[in-house]
Write a protein that binds this DNA or RNA. Structure first.
Length: 710
DNA sequence: TTGCAAGGGATTTTT
DNA sequence: TCCCTTGCAA
């Protein structure tokens, strides 16, 4: 075994690994080797302390983190731990696993054939319920209601309890919807993400012997990203650790950026109180960044009031100072970034080791344009995830319905995709019939179609009923079920290309379906349990973002600060560092929100290994109107000084321009210079572009090239 | 029932 | 400015 704990770990890390009795809080600053501590601790427990893997549970928030941890532990102790029963997974998947075994003991009507629904289904269900209650979805925004229900649920507040607190109209509405919502889920044997955890807790409360079983089983519990737990996840850990009390939580309060989703960083701050006698270990040595970057980041996050005091340091040396650049408009900012990236590439940097980080997805657009015109390859993280795409969801709806005919949400989607002449009116009739018979919508469908006069619609619906039944019949093989959908649903035919490959949307839909087929194949090859149920479970919990691992991408990564958490790059650009953007305008009037924005900015900056570039614009127009903004307060708090962009884009020759020159801009094309003037040291040029009309540009960022008039 | 046009609204999003 | 939802017409 190639395991040398003393050699591979620094003293604090080692202490964290060797503290195997009692509660242990590891405050792991950015880049301080957090994952290393967890994986080594797992290895230590198994290899040095001889703990059976089946008595250890390691919990993460993402599948990616779980997968990484699993393979690293495998590499360390050299056995296939999964087979030995180590429980590594996300909160949701581990709870899902418990519920597959135990949910019937809750006696609430759920069976182990439950389906896990996602965010989109939740909203659709709320829509259905609002309709049922004759409530206007404009007044009562489904999204807000979902948010409030989720908030209640994750604070372990049930539908009945909620109504007692509701005063505002939206709270009352939420209480009303919540009751029906939960009933509908139960009737359909459906679980939302929150239920996965909430029901385990409910089960433990109702059946103490089951709680006893699991809490005795897990002698050691490790939790990653503990700053992101919500109340019910906290409660779950508390209950699971009550027999043995050996619970290690690892996290960084400074990287808590999900409060808006219910994460409660007070829980990590209160750990010592909740678990008396806890060992607290701070990891402050950073292995990622230069001291310049860390100094700036430290100085920023030190402004937050609610935090453990920490100060990151490194052996990596001082490095280049953090670069700060001002641009006039977002377009200028984007071209500044792309020129700087060009300079880095010329200097030998790998494009895949560069990231541009922003606050909002909408900021990616201009960046894309600038990178395209500079011919720099890039990759965007964000937007629709694979399993959220229409065409993919359609296929899944058939599978879900075949597996669980009680799934009304899947029915609503599948029945008229592709179109079978079954619209709102028909649906309303079937719903009524279903209610009268006490059946799910799908199960009521045959009786309804029997009343139709023979014809196309009836034939199609009969074939639909038949197909779903056939899917149900092959439910012990996911791949057979998927093949059935592909051959018999008529979904594929919808995406036949009649325009000779010119329709990119159709093309991408077909590609997505091919990709789906590949994932099923892969599932079929890898899993022990190849059933449709197992596949659906995996898919529901695996809302995978297309690979965003640095180094595996195809170019410069464009990514939000939230999604960038946990990643690292040699060169990082944080763009849009302006009041109103970063910090976001909606956070401006709450100090708690500003603190979260500050942590988010901190997360963004600490992604950088070698060099960090921060940019902002003085002029950004948006749908609020065009405006001038102040640079972000975070810039001052990081104690940065501005550089001239010309310093970094040194190879760029600055043209001396006069009125009447014809110039070339890499986005706007060619145009004629109308005016050249100075404000302070900065040169501005007013150009009449052929394509886009008159623009005022900052000469040092706009990169105008003088060209011969045609 | 379906397709198109106009209007309103627009952070972030591990599962 | 753009995208999604809703409403109306064929």
């Amino acid at each position: 075994m190639l395991l040398d704990f003393e050699q591979d770990l620094n003293p604090e890390q080692l202490r964290a690994v060797e503290t195997t009795t009692g509660p242990c809080l590891v405050l792991a600053g950015a880049g301080s080797g957090k994952t290393r501590v967890i994986t080594y601790k797992l290895a230590y427990l198994i290899a040095k302390r001889g703990i059976a893997p089946s008595h250890i549970m390691a919990v993460t928030f993402t599948n990616k983190a779980a997968g990484e941890m699993r393979s690293r532990v495998d590499a360390l102790v050299g056995t296939d731990l999964a087979r030995k029963g180590l429980w590594i997974g996300t909160f949701h998947s581990l709870c899902g696993r418990i519920l597959r075994e135990q949910i019937e003991k809750l006696e609430l009507g759920y069976t182990n054939r439950f389906i896990i629904i996602d965010e989109d289904d939740r909203i659709r269900l709320v829509r259905q319920i609002l309709k049922e209650l004759n409530m206007d979805p404009k007044t009562y925004e489904p999204q807000k209601i979902v948010y409030r229900m989720s908030d209640a649920k994750s604070n372990l507040v049930g539908p009945e309890e909620l109504s007692d607190f509701g005063y505002s109209y939206i709270e009352k509405a939420t209480a009303a919807v919540y009751k029906l919502y939960q009933k509908r889920l139960q009737q359909g044997n459906l679980l939302d993400f929150d239920d996965l955890i909430a029901l385990v807790i409910q089960l433990f409360k109702a059946q103490p012997d089951i709680e006893e079983h699991y809490s005795s089983k897990f002698e050691h519990i490790l939790v990653d990203e503990y700053q992101d737990v919500n109340k019910m996840q906290y409660e779950l850990i508390k209950r699971l650790s009550k027999v043995h009390g050996n619970v290690t939580v690892v996290g960084d309060d400074d990287q808590s950026i999900y409060a808006f989703r219910g994460a409660n960083s007070k829980l990590i701050l209160g750990f010592e109180k909740d678990y008396p006698g806890a060992t607290v270990i701070k990891l402050e040595q950073n292995y990622r960044s230069t001291q310049s970057i860390l100094d700036a980041a430290n100085s920023l996050v030190a402004r937050n009031r609610t935090r453990f005091s920490k100060r990151l340091w490194t052996d990596n040396g001082t490095g280049a100072p953090v670069h700060l650049f001002e641009a006039l408009t977002p377009e200028d900012e984007a071209s500044l970034v792309s020129s700087a990236i060009e300079a880095l590439i010329r200097g030998g940097a790998d494009v895949r080791d560069i990231a541009v980080i922003y606050r909002m997805n909408s900021q990616s657009r201009v960046l894309e344009e600038a990178l395209i015109s500079a011919a720099i390859p890039y990759q965007i993280v964000g937007g629709l995830k694979f399993y959220e795409r229409q065409e993919v969801r359609d296929v899944l709806a058939y599978l879900r319905l075949g597996f669980n005919p009680g799934d009304n949400l899947a029915f609503e989607r599948a029945v008229n995709h592709p179109s079978r002449g079954f619209g709102d009116k028909s649906l309303a009739e079937v719903k009524d019939l279903a209610a009268a018979r006490g059946l799910s919508w799908f199960l009521a469908l045959p009786e309804w179609t029997a009343t139709l006069k023979p014809g196309k619609t009836k034939d199609k619906l009969d074939a639909f009923v038949d197909l779903i039944a056939r899917i149900g019949a092959v439910s012990d093989s996911a791949i057979d079920a998927v093949n059935l959908v592909f051959t018999s649903s008529g979904l594929l035919e919808q995406y036949k290309d009649e325009s000779d490959g010119a329709d990119f949307e159709l093309q991408s839909k077909r590609e997505n379906l091919e990709e789906l087929m590949r994932t099923v194949d892969e599932f079929n090859g890898m899993s022990e349990d190849r059933s449709l149920g197992a596949y659906l479970s995996q898919v529901a919990l695996m809302q995978d973002q297309d690979s965003m691992k640095p180094g595996t991408g195809r170019g410069v990564l464009l990514i939000t600060a939230h999604s960038a958490k946990g990643l690292e790059f040699s060169y990082v650009f944080v763009v849009g560092a302006e009041e109103g953007v970063f910090p976001h305008r909606r956070a401006l009037d709450s100090s708690a929100d500003i603190e979260e924005e500050r942590r988010l900015f901190y997360v963004a900056c600490t992604r950088a290994r070698k060099e960090l570039f921060i940019t902002y614009c003085t002029q950004r127009s948006s749908y609020y109107g065009s405006g001038f903004q102040e640079p972000s307060r975070f810039i001052k708090e990081m104690e940065l000084t501005r550089e001239r962009s010309a310093d970094v884009v040194s190879s760029h020759e600055r043209a001396e321009l006069i009125d009447g020159d014809t110039v070339m801009h890499n986005i706007f094309g060619t145009g004629k210079v109308l005016e050249v003037f100075y404000e302070g040291n900065d040169q501005y040029v007013v150009v009449d572009f052929k394509k886009v009309g008159i623009k005022k540009l900052a000469a040092q960022y706009a990169q105008l090239k003088k060209v011969q008039p045609l």
